[in-house]
């Protein structure tokens, strides 16, 4: 799927013929400027760096909270607290109140974070593997293999992602596993393009030519020399991919096509707010989950921005 949060992913998300139309390195940070004093440039780098640090801290906090959820709340996420009752406002026992089924909302937000994180990282890991393998195959073998893989990639990219995911989830039935698999199976094109593009550049580079000359076998060149060189850009794609996957999972769960109801997910916590009375009178039921999603995605985007700045070769050269 297209990663619209990441301007630098654009070059890799275009159909092939159109890449030529883009200025090289579109979206890469513009560090050098005619009007910028070195001090300001440094300030800006620092600012960017700081945001990435902030993002990293935010994400670590969220990860830790999800991981140590049982330590942060005495309530299991599906426990019905009959003594308190449903739809109760926040108090000492239930810091964010209870939901329509008398379950603790804070616990559901914490455990819902696990769902989002598992889907976010799981789906991205899956499509990184698929995308890297296809990209390596296309870039390395070239010719017919390349053409076939790239045409297939174009096709997948022309389909609106959410729509295709809805279709596939309907086929396999909603669950965490199917959401991961479906996002994974549809999300690989960006990775494949990126890997292939990098590989084409690398193939012409001097050290690969040198390796060929001294008789290093193909497979070794591919795995030992080429793959490490594309790890950087892959990390950037993966980071923004996590943001996209978290948003997708929450959308699917919101529509009732993601995680199955008794299980907590940020998306299905917010679904309750389509009821007018919940939306207007019981904000504690949905606002925390909304904040959780936005914070997570924002943190990942900050990290992605920072990583991109750090990894982009032009940025480092000019710095």
């Amino acid at each position: 799927m297209t990663q619209l949060n990441d301007p630098s992913a654009l070059a890799t998300s275009l159909p092939e013929g159109e890449m030529a139309k883009l200025p090289v390195g579109l979206g890469a940070p513009q560090v050098v400027g005619y009007q910028v004093s070195p001090r300001r440039a440094a300030l800006r780098r620092f600012f960017r760096y700081r945001l990435a640090i902030v993002g990293l801290i935010m994400l670590s906090a969220i990860l830790l909270m999800a991981l140590f959820a049982p330590l942060l709340t005495p309530w299991p996420p599906n426990w019905v607290d009959f003594s308190t009752g449903a739809r109760q406002p926040p108090d000492a026992a239930h810091v964010l109140g209870t939901d329509v089924s008398a379950r603790d909302i804070w616990a559901r937000v914490l455990y819902g974070g696990r769902t989002s994180i598992i889907v976010g990282f799981g789906a991205v890991a899956l499509y990184l593997i698929i995308g890297t393998l296809l990209g390596l195959a296309a870039g390395y073998y070239g010719r017919f293999v390349d053409q076939a893989i790239m045409r297939f990639t174009d096709t997948i990219m022309a389909i609106p992602p959410l729509l295709l995911i809805i279709v596939f989830v309907a086929v396999v039935g909603p669950s965490i596993a199917s959401v991961i698999v479906v996002i994974g199976l549809l999300g690989w094109p960006v990775t494949a393009r990126l890997v292939r593009g990098q590989l084409l550049v690398l193939r012409e580079s001097e050290f690969i030519t040198a390796a060929h000359v001294v008789g290093v076998p193909d497979r070794t060149i591919l795995l030992r020399h080429m793959l490490p060189n594309i790890l950087g850009p892959l990390t950037v794609v993966a980071t923004f991919g996590v943001a996209t996957a978290v948003l997708l999972e929450s959308s699917l769960s919101f529509l009732g096509l993601g995680v199955r109801p008794p299980e907590a997910s940020w998306g299905n916590l917010i679904t309750e707010a389509v009821s007018p009375v919940v939306l207007t009178r019981l904000p504690w039921q949905w606002v925390p989950a909304a904040i959780a999603i936005t914070t997570t995605v924002l943190a990942v985007n900050f990290i992605g921005d920072g990583l991109r700045d750090a990894i982009d070769p032009r940025a480092t050269k000019r710095a």
């Binding site: 917010i270 207007t280 999603i293 936005t294 995605v297 985007n301």
Partner: peptide, 18 residues
Amino acid sequence: AIFLASTPVFVLALIAIY
């Protein structure tokens, strides 16, 4: 812009309705 790009559509829609 970053903040809006990080917020799900349905949250924005619910806030707008509210």
